[in-house]
């Protein structure tokens, strides 16, 4: 009952990322709030992640706890914002039979790419999915019809539909974030609510290996830009023209790993 009451409160996140002072560059994730981000992006350094061992799920747990993401046992109806996939599934068009083992069998973190040119936004008939400030691809759970057109349009499987009422499947409730109802779509929001308060995304903050870096692409001195200019990075399915903004550092040791 309490959960329902919370769910009824202001569920709509406006696109305005209002919490930022308009000065200074974003140098590292912890300082996310100190800058106006015009184009938020994430860089994932998988080598750092793997060094923690395959059991580490800190980022996933932090995200799902912060956003009241239910744990639905049926994989067909799962709701997930961030999770891992093996290389061949995350980058299916970039595998070959003899791919280096250290890539092939390792988990890669996947989430909504907050595409620069997002097909989900293009198809949504109600603007329930829209592009907000900072290039964030956002959702209005109050407006969503549950037509699932956006799920057909997203080439990254980043969207989940609430096939049933998610509230009974919450381990614990974060009263600061709305719960969802059955019948709407949801996905990673790059922690808009935290960015508004000047905090980095929950996953970035939770990562003990500092494998996740968040920042402003429009700021040439940001850490994300520094890594992108110094390392070999790839994005998922670039051939589709969506221009994803989650980047993966692929071959550590070629310029980026020593630099930090």
């Amino acid at each position: 009952m309490k959960i329902g009451a919370v769910g009824g409160l202001g569920l709509v996140f406006l696109p305005a990322v209002k919490g930022f002072a308009g000065s200074g560059a974003l140098r590292d994730a912890a300082g996310a709030g100190s800058a106006v981000g015009r184009k938020w992006a994430m860089v994932v350094d998988m080598q750092k992640c793997w060094e923690r061992g395959a059991e580490c799920r800190d980022c996933i747990l932090a995200c799902h706890r912060a956003h009241n993401v239910p744990e639905i046992p049926d994989p067909e109806e799962e709701v997930k914002w961030v999770w891992t996939e093996r290389f061949e599934h995350a980058f299916p068009e970039q595998v070959h039979e003899y791919l280096a083992e250290h890539l092939r069998d390792k988990p890669f973190l996947v989430l909504c790419n907050h595409c620069e040119n997002p097909p989900c936004v293009r198809v949504c008939p109600t603007k329930a999915t829209f592009k907000g400030d900072g290039g964030l691809v956002m959702m209005d759970y109050h407006r969503c019809l549950g037509c699932r057109y956006c799920m057909a349009a997203c080439p990254y499987g980043a969207r989940s539909f609430n096939f049933r009422d998610p509230r009974p499947y919450l381990r614990e409730l974060n009263p600061a974030f709305p719960t969802r109802e059955k019948g709407v779509v949801e996905k990673c929001n790059f922690c808009t609510e935290r960015l508004e308060e000047g905090l980095p995304p929950a996953c970035v903050e939770a990562c003990p290996a500092k494998a996740l870096v968040f920042g402003d692409l429009d700021d040439p001195s940001s850490e994300v830009r520094r890594i992108l200019s110094a390392s070999y990075t790839i994005v998922r399915k670039p051939e589709l023209g969506t221009r994803p903004k989650v980047y993966y550092v692929i071959n550590p040791g070629l310029g980026n790993s020593g630099g930090r």
Binding site: P125, R143, C144, R148
Partner: peptide, 29 residues
């Protein structure tokens, strides 16, 4: 068939309240 497929059929009118010409579903309607 479109209505029975919706997760939130009572919000059907949102398609008219917030017309979105870039969506083909809008044009289909």
């Amino acid at each position: 068939f479109v209505i029975v497929d919706l997760g939130k059929p009572m919000r059907l009118l949102n398609m008219i309240l917030y017309p979105t010409p870039n969506s083909l579903l809008f044009w289909d309607m």
